[in-house]
Design a binder for these strands. Structure first.
Lengths: 159, 159
DNA sequence: GTTTTTGCAAATGATTTGCAGAGCT
DNA sequence: AGCTCTGCAAATCATTTGCAAAAAC
């Protein structure tokens, strides 16, 4: 099918099995493309768009079609393995871990950090109580500027 | 220009002046189209997309072009009068008031409520301190289910 | 009268879809 | 064999842009 399919029927080296297992427990069949997408995305700090990921996969020698990239990203996001960030015209995706957390998005460098939802006196629970609203911890985004960018700004301004 | 332009050079009745003033203080010239857009959007509970707004304006007898709607929405959002919600393929806009607040988005009915950012023990400030991150209160979104929808669900399930 | 805004139509860009072939069970 | 996944090309949908007429200051 793709240029890399000649390598082996499937490449079971490294933590490929772990990735496959993760797909399975999310309720998805661990197809080669989905594994490649998840492997390509999982160590990134900032959300990746479909086209950028397509290029990255090509660079890795995986000849994945554009529509397959879109389909894989949607499937992974719907299964809860990725979080989708809309804005700037395209949707970008980032790994989303299991625990209760929300997302700190740096508008300067684009990095997204997961912040544990309970390290702050259960803020989300207070919303539930005080605002008559049941928040979904993993669907909360806070935009701002991360510490590194703040300090970079200051240095740029001062000196 | 439009079918309504024959009515009067400008329609200074009601709180049209107030809307114009709001545009001015946001740094925008209060053109007829911008006023019409702001008037059409400001009492809505849930964010409105460009096309929906276009239809609404047509219904009100304002023959506004599609690109003007887009331009007006972008201008108002950039000026801070509206908040833009991306997702589901299109960008939707909602009035955004002056105070420190974040947005509670009901995934069931789509309603967005502004929640004062200080009613919760300055949660955002704690993030700033604990997470090395400078949050922008007005760019924070929490998704979840609002009280009305929760109760509607329960009623639907029980009886 | 000059500058800004608007409308239209065409262009762009992201994403989806139809469909036939490939891959896995 | 049967069902899902994939790739390609075409279709779709939201949004942007070029440009000339219209409106505002």
């Amino acid at each position: 099918m793709g240029p890399d399919s000649a390598t082996a029927p499937c490449e079971p080296r490294g933590d490929a099995d772990e990735v496959a297992a993760r797909l399975r427990s999310a309720g998805l069949s661990p197809t080669r493309r989905r594994r490649q997408v998840l492997e390509a995305i999982e160590h990134r700090q900032r959300p990746v768009g479909a086209h950028e990921l397509y290029v990255e996969l090509a660079r890795r020698g995986h000849g994945v079609g554009m529509s397959t990239v879109y389909r894989a990203l949607s499937a992974l996001a719907e299964a809860g393995l990725l979080h989708a960030f809309a804005g700037d015209g395209e949707t970008r995706y980032r790994l989303c871990t299991a625990g209760r957390h929300y997302h700190l998005v740096c508008r300067r460098c684009g990095t997204v950090r997961e912040y544990p939802a309970d390290d702050d006196g259960a803020w989300l629970d207070r919303i539930a109580a005080e605002a008559d609203f049941e928040p979904d911890p993993r669907k909360a985004e806070v935009q701002g500027v991360c510490g590194s960018c703040l300090r970079a700004d200051r240095n740029g301004t001062d000196g």
